[in-house]
């Protein structure tokens, strides 16, 4: 029984990873643009970016998903459930990732920029070779824990019909009346994936820490 349930529910692992991974990737990339915009000297640009980040973060993820999946078709933009989920979670991830990047950047002392300027490094070289690598190192644990958060949020995609882990768990529960077992299995699958993410990030983090030797 357990084996059968596991086989059924594990079918959802692929889409869970796909939705989470794609959203993290797109969100991470858009987040870079956002953080640059927030730090822009042009007030309109930094204002719009700040507003975007705040609005996106305070609206619940499920509301975004419904808005995109059920709301947008009214204006002729019909997305598949998977596309809608990825668009929605990318939107949310971009705002959170921008904040994570921002705190990473803030943690780099001004002295590092000054040293780079005094050496005559260009702004591009300073950001690319001095600031970003150090900010990445600082932001890594936060990125990993956000990735795990996003993984959990991706369960919401089941509400618009994306066949990921929770979707299959619900189906199994209905068909076999093994509700408890179905959702325990779903939970265990999330735990296993989270553990893998956590272990990888810990490894990378420790390696950087040993190398650089900063707190």
């Amino acid at each position: 029984m357990i084996a059968q349930l596991l086989l059924t529910i594990a079918q959802g692992v692929g889409l869970t990873l796909y939705v989470t991974g794609a959203s993290l990737l797109f969100g991470g990339a858009i987040g870079l643009v956002l953080v640059a915009a927030v730090r822009s000297r042009i007030p309109v640009i930094s204002g719009i970016a700040t507003l975007y980040i705040n609005v996106v973060r305070v609206v619940p993820p499920i509301t975004w998903l419904f808005l995109i999946y059920f709301g947008l078709p009214q204006y002729a933009l019909r997305l598949s459930a998977i596309q809608a989920a990825i668009v929605g979670f990318s939107l949310i991830a971009s705002a959170f990732m921008a904040e994570i990047y921002r705190s990473g950047l803030l943690s780099i002392p001004d002295a590092q920029r000054e040293a780079a300027h005094a050496l005559g490094l260009s702004p591009v070289a300073t950001v690319g070779h001095i600031i970003t690598p150090q900010a990445f190192r600082v932001a890594l644990p936060a990125v990993a824990s956000y990735a795990i958060g996003l993984l959990k949020d991706s369960a919401l995609a089941s509400t618009i019909g994306v066949r990921e882990i929770t979707y299959y768990a619900q189906q199994s529960a209905r068909q076999t009346h093994e509700g408890l077992l179905s959702f325990i299995i779903a939970g265990v699958l999330y735990i296993v994936i989270s553990l893998v993410v956590a272990v990888i990030s810990r490894r990378v983090d420790l390696r950087l820490r040993r190398k650089i030797g900063v707190a």
């Binding site: 002295a111 590092q112 000054e114 040293a115 300027h117 005094a118 050496l119 005559g120 001095i130 690598p133 150090q134 190192r137 650089i212 030797g213 900063v214």
Partner: peptide, 19 residues
């Protein structure tokens, strides 16, 4: 750029690049 090319600076807190 020229000014920074002809000057070299050493800081109180060293400011080496830790990475």
């Amino acid at each position: 750029d020229h000014l920074r090319r002809v000057t070299g600076m050493v800081f109180q807190s060293f400011n080496l690049f830790p990475h």
